[in-house]
């Protein structure tokens, strides 16, 4: 398991990284893929193969003090180029 942070970028167009997870820190649960980059596929281009990570977050990390139950968790699939190491931060 590695601690990772989801990039905070907000580009226009089709990306598969949910807005509510941008900038949040989680741990990688497993690595999948490689899968073609959906940001290429969505516009009719062949997709660059990328690792896909299942990243686990706590509800406290995502929603802060508004979390319904802070220790509940959420997992999502995030493509490698949207993740950066969180340990240096």
């Amino acid at each position: 398991m590695h601690r990772v942070k989801v990039r905070t970028d907000m580009p226009p167009g089709h990306v598969r990284t949910p807005s509510y997870l941008r900038g949040k820190v989680g741990v990688t649960e497993r690595v999948l893929g490689p899968f073609p980059n959906p940001e290429n596929l969505a516009y009719g281009h062949s997709g660059t193969p990328l690792p896909l990570y299942r990243v686990r977050f706590t509800m406290a990390e995502i929603w802060g003090a508004d979390a319904e139950t802070p220790n509940d968790t959420l997992e999502a699939e995030i493509y490698a180029h949207w993740l950066e190491p969180a340990d240096a931060a």
Partner: peptide, 12 residues
């Protein structure tokens, strides 16, 4: 002809 990603892109 296109991908599910293309479908989603236009839906968005």
């Amino acid at each position: 002809l296109f991908t599910v990603d293309g479908l989603r892109r236009v839906l968005e």
